[in-house]
């Protein structure tokens, strides 16, 4: 960011210049597209601070119509990994877990390298 640039998303350190440039370069139309391409709105506050600024940037770039809210993804409040992890081992495996064997190729036939249960895909 150069010194003239105004910070648009504090959490992610994305400047207004980068957002305006992405809107122009990719012909972006919605907040969600701006978010995906610039990272603005993907930080700690989940866009609570910068969502209105994203909409304003689109309007300033001459985009007509409703830019829509950026899609809100869970968790709504940041949760430390260790807090999420607490007690997780006791949970049953969620249905549909794709085994490492599937996801990472069949390991050249070595089933010993892939200790996940067989896939039970949806």
């Amino acid at each position: 960011m150069d010194s003239e640039d105004v910070v648009l998303c504090r959490c992610q350190g994305v400047g207004t210049d980068a957002v305006m440039a992405a809107i122009a370069r990719h012909g972006l139309l919605t907040c969600d597209q701006v978010k995906k391409l610039t990272g603005a709105g993907m930080g700690w506050c989940q866009g609570r601070t910068c969502a209105p600024l994203l909409a304003a940037a689109l309007a300033a770039a001459g985009v007509a119509g409703d830019p829509g809210p950026p899609r809100v993804r869970p968790p709504l409040r940041p949760v430390p990994l260790a807090v999420l992890a607490a007690g997780a081992d006791a949970l049953p495996a969620p249905l549909g877990t794709v085994s490492a064997k599937v996801l990472w190729g069949r390991s050249s036939g070595d089933t010993t390298l892939t200790l996940e249960p067989e896939p039970d895909r949806p």
Binding site: M42, Q46, P74, P80, L81, A85
Partner: peptide, 19 residues
């Protein structure tokens, strides 16, 4: 999350912000 903390214990306090 449990697997992440198992592989790199130092990440325990790092917050998940989206899924």
């Amino acid at each position: 999350a449990a697997v992440v903390v198992g592989l790199i214990p130092a990440l325990a306090g790092v917050p998940v912000v989206r899924a």
